[in-house]
Design a binder for these strands. Sequence first.
DNA 1: CGTAGGGTTGAGCGAAATCAAATATAGTGG
DNA 2: CCACTATATTTGATTTCGCTCAACCCTACG
Lengths: 248, 248
Amino acid sequence: MSLIDTEVMRGLNTQGALSHEDKALLLGLELTPRYMSASEVLWQEREDTDQFCVVKEGWAYSYRNLKNGSKQIFNFYLPGDIIGIRDFGFTRRLTSVAMINKGVICPFSYQQLFELFGRSSLAVGIVATATRQQAQLSERLIYLGKYSAYEQLTHFLYEIYLRLKRIKAVENNSFFMPLTQELISDALGMSSVHVSRTFSMLREEGLVIRKRQHVMLPDPEALARLVEFNDSYIDEFLPPSFSELLKS
Amino acid sequence: MSLIDTEVMRGLNTQGALSHEDKALLLGLELTPRYMSASEVLWQEREDTDQFCVVKEGWAYSYRNLKNGSKQIFNFYLPGDIIGIRDFGFTRRLTSVAMINKGVICPFSYQQLFELFGRSSLAVGIVATATRQQAQLSERLIYLGKYSAYEQLTHFLYEIYLRLKRIKAVENNSFFMPLTQELISDALGMSSVHVSRTFSMLREEGLVIRKRQHVMLPDPEALARLVEFNDSYIDEFLPPSFSELLKS
DNA sequence: CGTAGGGTTGAGCGAAATCAAATATAGTGG
DNA sequence: CCACTATATTTGATTTCGCTCAACCCTACG
């Protein structure tokens, strides 16, 4: 999974906004693969910020260890996602990042990112990518604040499903999800015990079948209807006007 | 309060990264003031996205009306803040935005933003601004997920205090805060009744004195210690290396 | 002086946390 | 291939935080 295949960059590309040099620059970010083992830490909170990463394979997550001993997970990163944009503009890492399972990442430097900024289209692409991450976070925030555990977990599973579908990692409504209930609980701000109970409810209703790391959603759209899932933050295209604006 | 006075842009400027043209472009965003009354709506969720705003005076907030009748507030915008970056890269608004009290905003167009992207320094500035907003949101998320109402409100008040201090709107540890407890409750994901109770606790402990729209924190740092406030996401400078990278 | 929009206070309830114990299941080395 | 271990998951019992409902109070303002 390459950056160039992400929603945002594909959008720019089909709008004809990416030159050969642009694409070359983008691909240049992914030349130095690094093989990561499960649980390996990419960086810790408060370390100096000096690079970003593209996930090529495997899942990663960003988190903060809290003073009360628990842990808050912010994001799960799937193949094709950029890790570290959140820290752009800060000298130190705001969160730690670690792999969930083994995988491959491609680190790239601030310098390389700045080269992208020299090209409007790519600057636009980066900002759009960053705001999409932010939009994802915002949706999570809604569910944390105002909805029940049941609705939260439902929303979470459907979001993962959509994101995986976009990168062609869903087959027959089934997908691989290397998350423990503990990890899910740290992301959703609930106890792992309650995650288990909530999974049981979903299972009894025939909405979610989960066997260790394999999840099947017999009727994904049923989940979406349950929580009135607003998929625009994941699925929407770039505004068509971007191509016009980039030409001027 | 102008964009050019924000932390991020001042940082770039003192690093010598902003040319005269850059500054002119920035100031050009603030040429068309629009006077807004209290509660006036800037835009609604799902409307076409065609502009951004800088807040010159007054407070605004972004929110989503939820299917269960409640409302989730994402951000409060203070003078100097940019509204709408969250929607960049989407064709429709992800959230509604409205004024809290009366004020002045300066709208600017996508076209104008794209002109900024033609200049690396400003593109960097915009991304840094966007990620700072995201960082703010992330901190909120932590408190929503893992901390008690008491800790949440404490954190919230200290954050507002810090943001106001940065724009010189704090005097003698006192500041003007045009928020009802209802608005606060919609931001923090708790009931307004419980916000009231929590304010009472803070009052009894002598940590917060609140009279209508005026708040005084006798000992702000005491609040910060209570929640181990990590102020890097508000107060930290841009990485010094930015100036080097922008030259190349 | 009356009213309306905040804010405060009390009582009862419920969702989810915590604590604790019992079961899977995957991996490991022998 | 099996026994053993560590890690996940499930289930039950109890507690707690914060919600809801309801009444009441305050104060700014026409």
